[in-house]
């Protein structure tokens, strides 16, 4: 008798009601999955780019480069066109200004590249990567079934 009643209640537990919003729920789950997948792939791509860039900077060497900046690429056009007529001079000066801007940018990039090759940068990035790895492992442990 008791077994019958237990089976009856067990069978009641097996009945699940119909949900009006079942398709919406299904869509929500699938959208969540897609979003998570995109996020993960995006993170992989970004870390790949950053890692690749970092590795590249370790191999790049700028000859005669200094953090102070200076006139390695500037002023040559000015010297060459000092005695031409005013129109040509104006054009050359314009090009020279553009070249100066480009050279300054290159110096800035060079400065960053040099900085990225210093031991300080290595230890800062190493510590950051370790932190991210620890957080990832902690999150993974939390998500464990």
């Amino acid at each position: 008798m008791t077994d019958d009643k237990d089976h009856y209640i067990r069978a009641l537990f097996d009945i699940s009601p119909a949900y009006d919003d079942a398709p919406v729920f299904q869509q929500k789950v699938m959208m969540g999955l897609t979003l998570k997948s995109w996020l993960r792939q995006g993170l992989v791509v970004i870390s790949g780019l950053i890692g690749g860039l970092y590795a590249l900077t370790q191999f790049v060497r700028m000859p005669e480069w200094s953090l102070k900046g200076g006139g390695l690429y500037t002023g040559s056009l000015q010297m060459a066109t000092r005695r031409t007529d005013a129109t040509v001079e104006a054009g050359v000066e314009f090009i020279d200004i553009m070249a100066r801007g480009l050279a300054d940018s290159l110096f800035a990039v060079g400065g960053y590249v040099q900085w990225m090759q210093t031991p300080q940068f290595f230890w800062v990035s190493f510590a950051l990567c370790s932190c991210i790895l620890v957080l990832y492992l902690l999150n993974d442990a939390q998500e464990r079934i």
Binding site: S16, Y19, A22, P23, F25, Q26, V29, M30, L33
Partner: peptide, 15 residues
């Protein structure tokens, strides 16, 4: 997986 969600979401939500 979407089909699995469709089949079992009701039972899981009820549980």
């Amino acid at each position: 997986f979407g089909e699995l969600v469709r089949r079992h979401s009701g039972a899981l939500r009820t549980h």
